[in-house]
Simulated assay, not measured.
Amino acid sequence: MTAADAILSYAVWLAFAVLAVAFLLTVWRVVKGPTLPDRVVALDMLTGIVIGFIALIAIRTGFTLYIDIAISLGLVGFLATVAFARFVLSRGTGGGAPKESGTAAPLAAVPAQRRKPRTRRTGSAGPAVRRKARK
């Protein structure tokens, strides 16, 4: 065993230990998370940690098929995160940061005093002008 192999072996074992601690803390956040967005972010983090484990196993064994599995898991994990985010937005109970002022709110969310009344177009002269013309 050369010095480079020993360093690589120690680095892989250290990375396994760090990822194991990160995995446990992230699972705790999924279980304990105070809000649904916290849990969604923790699940996304779990996907990243599992990808790290798969990459370490690929380094340790030298079997490169694991890298393809890690890439596939990354794509599926991203789609799952997007689906969870859309679910949270559809429920409307984000509990996270307030909305930005630049985003457009639906008409029902705008207070009644700020809404402009909808008028019907009846031609060049309005109804009040026509009433005066009839008299």
Rank of each mutant, 00 (worst) to 15 (best):
M1H: 10
A4N: 14
A4D: 13
D5G: 06
A6Q: 13
A6Y: 08
A6E: 13
I7T: 15
I7E: 14
V12I: 15
W13N: 12
F16E: 05
A17S: 10
V18L: 08
V18D: 04
A20K: 03
L25Q: 09
L25I: 12
T26I: 00
T26Y: 00
T26G: 01
V27S: 08
W28I: 12
P34I: 05
P37D: 04
P37E: 06
D38C: 00
R39C: 05
V41F: 01
V41S: 01
V41R: 01
A42W: 04
L43W: 07
T47C: 15
I49F: 03
I49R: 05
I49W: 02
I49V: 12
V50I: 13
I51V: 12
I51A: 12
I51T: 09
F53D: 03
A55I: 14
A55K: 07
A55L: 13
I57S: 08
I57C: 08
A58T: 15
A58N: 08
T61S: 15
T61K: 05
T64A: 13
T64K: 10
L65Y: 14
I69E: 04
I69F: 14
A70Q: 10
G74E: 00
G77P: 04
L79K: 00
V82S: 00
A83F: 08
A83G: 07
A85T: 10
F87Y: 13
F87I: 09
V88A: 07
R91V: 01
G92W: 02
G92Y: 01
T93R: 11
G94V: 11
G95R: 02
G96P: 03
A97S: 12
A97C: 06
K99L: 15
E100S: 13
A104C: 13
A104M: 15
A109Q: 10
A109F: 05
P111G: 11
P111R: 11
A112K: 09
A112R: 06
R114W: 08
R115D: 04
K116C: 05
R118T: 14
R118G: 08
T119Q: 04
R120M: 12
R120P: 00
R120N: 03
R120T: 11
R121M: 10
R121K: 07
R121Y: 14
T122Y: 11
G123S: 05
G126Y: 07
G126S: 13
A128F: 10
V129P: 00
V129F: 08
R130Q: 12
R130Y: 06
A133Y: 08
A133W: 07
K135L: 09
